[in-house]
Design a protein around this nucleic acid. Structure first.
Length: 376
RNA sequence: GGGGGAGUCGCAUAGUGGCAAUUGCAACAGACUGUAAAUCUGUCCUCUUCGGAGUUCAUUGGUUCGAGUCCAAUCUCCCCCA
């Protein structure tokens, strides 16, 4: 894997680049749709490719390990082949589940034990087996096993958590270096900065990660309850320390505004469940603001969902029709909302890239931001 | 004509002397950030300074400290027999 930077904006730290992988190139800044269990919920692979033009998607180590399980994944030739997706895949390590399944897990030095949310069975994740599992999944980008620390953690806990994540990282790297890809294509390993909302911890962590990163780095543990401004400060601070010649991935973020702010501070890669989850719950993101398609006001709005969208469903179907489908609880509504939101997110980062190349990113961002944050 | 049953806040339901009244649906909003989410939350008779206040359970009258609940009549609907 390699990363080339095409342009750095004149007015800010935003950059436009290309990540080259064995499964194709990824133009950055990039948004990666989340496909936790080997499926971007409610969206077909051909829609991801042709309507949305997703360059890379996410899978999740924890979920795929529980189901379908490693045997099936290996027999199926890895996740790319199993799910019929020939473009790049990044897998999260399960670090986020250490956070989100807090009631069903126990953290120790060795690793983290989980109770399966599916059948209650007990499982142990260690830095070593998380590397092994991601080898079997076959992700182009594997993530280090970390603890995603809650946003309101106190300093003492945040430090302990960060130091554990660092020790786990060294074990991840050792395992990574002593194992080979299963399917013949290269797999990169991204370490993850932690440190919660404490500046000194973030600095320390970013420096630790910068020393060990070879192909890319991630910033984790943000957008987990801390104020948005704090998140922006942490992002800026981390980007200053992380290697300039590697892609930077801000994990789990975020709203359209969050993404533009982070791009301005030097982030290249994003993922978030928001476009798909909120879409399934009736929220549409648009260049003019967010709308709740379930609201009565859309009942007779016979305008196309988005006449400019590359996705056919956005141009063909009206807001009134989508409103009707949503109310009628038709599965098609969830599909259309998900496709629309993903198409919008990808339009957003594509347009951001163009403005970075043009050198007027900051100005464009300031102009579009109030609209994005509006509620229609 | 005779006998039996039923009328509750849009719809459907609970309620057998202390009730502004149960639950579901519908309706109207809100939330959602490395997915335990096609999920969750709030409002849902009227007014409110959010403390409450005022009117309600087909209609009218009665019993009772107190009635959606008991009694009587009336109206409407359903079932059975002629």
């Amino acid at each position: 894997m390699s990363f080339e930077i095409n342009a750095t904006d004149r007015g800010c730290r935003a950059r436009a680049g290309v990540i080259h992988t064995c499964h194709g190139d990824i133009a950055t800044p990039v948004f990666m749709p989340v496909g936790t269990v080997g499926s971007v919920k409610a969206v077909h692979q051909h829609e991801l490719r042709d309507d949305i033009n997703a360059q890379i998607i996410l899978g999740n180590t924890y979920h795929l390990y529980l189901r379908p399980g490693l045997g099936t994944l290996q027999a199926g030739g890895g996740l790319h082949r199993f799910m019929g997706w020939e473009r790049p895949i990044l897998t999260d390590s399960g670090g986020f589940q250490v956070f989100s399944l807090a009631d069903n897990r126990k953290i120790r030095e060795e690793g983290c034990t989980f109770r399966s949310h599916i059948d209650g069975s007990k499982h142990l994740f260690t830095p070593e087996n998380v590397m092994d599992i991601q080898r079997v999944i076959g992700a182009d980008i594997m993530m280090a096993f970390d603890e995603c620390c809650p946003g309101d953690a106190d300093r003492r806990y945040a430090r302990q958590s960060m130091e554990l994540t660092h020790r786990w990282l060294d074990r991840c790297i050792a395992r990574y270096n002593s194992t080979e890809p299963c399917y013949g294509h290269h797999q990169a390993l991204f370490p993850i900065v932690q440190g919660c909302q404490y500046e000194d911890l973030r600095r320390e962590s970013a420096a630790y990660i910068a020393e060990r990163a070879t192909e890319g780095c991630a910033i984790g543990g943000l957008a987990v309850g801390e104020p948005t401004e704090v998140m922006y400060e942490m992002v800026a601070l981390c980007c200053d320390i992380l290697p300039a010649d590697q892609p930077r991935y801000l994990m789990g973020v975020g709203t359209p505004a969050n993404i533009l702010e982070a791009i301005e501070r030097g982030v290249d890669m994003f993922d978030c469940v928001m476009p798909t989850r909120n879409g399934r719950n009736g929220m549409l993101f648009t260049a003019h603001g967010t709308i709740n398609i379930k609201n009565k006001k859309w009942e007779t709005c016979f305008e196309p969902i988005d006449p400019e969208s590359p996705a056919e469903c956005d141009r063909v179907y009206t807001l009134a029709y989508l409103h009707h489908l949503m109310r009628a609880e038709e599965i098609l509504a969830l599909q259309i909302c998900s496709i629309h939101n993903l198409a919008f997110y990808l339009w957003l980062v594509r347009t951001a890239r163009r403005h970075i190349l043009d050198g007027d990113y900051a100005r464009w961002k300031s102009a579009i931001l109030p609209d994005l944050m509006r509620r229609i």
